[in-house]
Structure formats: C-alpha cells, structure tokens
Design a protein around this nucleic acid. Sequence first.
DNA 1: TAAATATATTTGTTGTACTAAATATTTGTA
DNA 2: TACAAATATTTAGTACAACAAATATATTTA
Lengths: 145, 145
Amino acid sequence: MLNEKFDRYSFILDQTAKKVKQFAQSSFAEKGFDITVDQWTVLKALYETDQLSQKELAKRCGKDQPTLTRIVDILLKKNLAERITDETDRRSLYLHLTEEGKLKVASLTPIVTEIRMKAWENLADEDFEAFTRILNTIYNNLNIE
Amino acid sequence: MLNEKFDRYSFILDQTAKKVKQFAQSSFAEKGFDITVDQWTVLKALYETDQLSQKELAKRCGKDQPTLTRIVDILLKKNLAERITDETDRRSLYLHLTEEGKLKVASLTPIVTEIRMKAWENLADEDFEAFTRILNTIYNNLNIE
DNA sequence: TAAATATATTTGTTGTACTAAATATTTGTA
DNA sequence: TACAAATATTTAGTACAACAAATATATTTA
C-alpha cells in the first residue's frame, strides 16, 4: 500500500526533535548554563521583546499558558525575570528580565547558536529551505481550529 | 550573520513534532481510543514483534527504559499486555500483547494510518524523501555517544 | 447598575523525558 | 568457587505538555 511508507514519519520527526532538545540540554549542562532548554526559549523571547504579557509570551514561545506559568515561576526563583501587574488591566502580568537575566541571555546567545549549528553539518542551504517549507506545511495541515 | 537564519529551526521542529502528536492525540480522544499516542507506539511495536524484552522494546520505540517501564505499567492495568519473566535470564521481562491488545492494534491500525496521512496533504513524494533524509542527517549529526 | 460573558492567570491531574541511584541477577575472572 | 563487573529493570526526583477547572478581573448588555 502506498500510504504505508508515510506511516513512520511521525517517529522520525519525534525522535529528531527529541534528539535536538537533548543535545542542547546536555551541552547546556556541560557548559554549566544552569537553565533548561525551555527556560532558554522563554528568556530569549523576553530578551527580544521585553514587557510581554504571559499570554503573549506563551504564544511566542509556542507553549500553553499553564506550562508558561510554571516556567516563569522557575525563572523568578532564579532571579532572571520579574512579574509586574499591569495597572490598566489587573488580570494581566507583564514580564521582563532582570539585569541578571539580560546578562545571561547576552552572554549565552553566541554559544547557543554554536550548539544549534551542529545539527546542520553535511546539509546545504536548499535543505534548510526544504526543511522549513515541509515542516510548516505539515504544521498548517494539522492546525485546524 | 549567515548562521542567524539557522537559529530558529529547532523551534519549527519542536512545534511541528508537538502539533503532530497533539493532532493524533485529539483524534484518538475524539474516536474514543482510550490510549495515548505513546502507548500506541509501544502497542504497535509489540504487535509487529511479540515477545520483546523491555530493553529491546524501549530501543524500538525510541524511549528510555524508565519511561517504557511506566508506559508498560499502564498497558498492564488496561489488560493490553503482559509481563513474563524470562526463565533463562531472570533479570529480563518479556512482554507480549493480550488478545485484547492484539484486537485493539488490529482494529485501530487503519484509522491511525488515516490520521497520520493528513499531515502530508499538499506535499509530494520528493518532499517525503527530503524530509527523511534531512531529519536523519540532523539526528546523526547530534547522535554522539 | 446588576448580571452575564469574556479574558488572563493559576492550580490540579495525568503522562512523558531524563538523570541518578537502588535492586536483582548474570557473567567474567582470579 | 568467590568476588568484581556488567546487565535489566525499577524507583525517585525534577521538568515539561496537555487538558480541565478554578480564580480574579474586565467588559458587555439588559
């Protein structure tokens, strides 16, 4: 049956995503970063745009709100970010990085890029185009709301 | 900087893998399958090759042993699989599906294939080739042991 | 203005991932 | 044979993902 060969793509996709995360995480540990990959995603988003609400931050990080709440809780404990109540809408909490948080992102960014690049050895620019196009297509095919 | 554009691939990869899993999971729920996607992965592997040790099963499913142990615990509770001590090596446990487990896999398989195929709308066979080649390359680039 | 509805966040629960450590058993070697 | 090393599995602890329900506050509407 023609469709059979498509049946295992989800396995390859899942394993590769897991490996990418795992590689980054063990590199972080090895270099003594003392944050998880998911915490890094949140820190980076806040560094790029400070003063985001949790809702907006969750969206940019591709995480749901309960998950983000818990990650932010940890960042607060580590003194990397702060929660500030929005006085115009007291339901909202705005987040921004502490000085320590900003320094951390600034100093780690180049090293993270280096870690991330390792995945692309033996691959060409056209592969990158195909990669993003195919994954975005799959995402959109399944993103029915 | 040339490398900048490669910096966000991990996000796309992660989001897409998550979406594929989430789509399958919500389809499972909608159709009343009463198992998780990860439980399905294990059931399918056991269906294809019965009588696997937990170690071998974990490897085939791309899961670590503690995670597999817990998934198997759940499958036992659901009467879908059984653990049998290997009398030639009493450290090992062999697993196999119950009749109920086999029936479940047999009846769900075509529906799962259908669910999985939805991701490939608007994509060509060449895309599938590129997809597997690129993801496998990335996996191998990072798979340093 | 009071009640209904909507929005932002948090809490609770279940399941999975990873690490380290514990347990039981087997194998290799002195 | 006895002891050390290796192997298979489980347990414990922390982190993250998804969902549902709870809480607090805003907005809409009757």
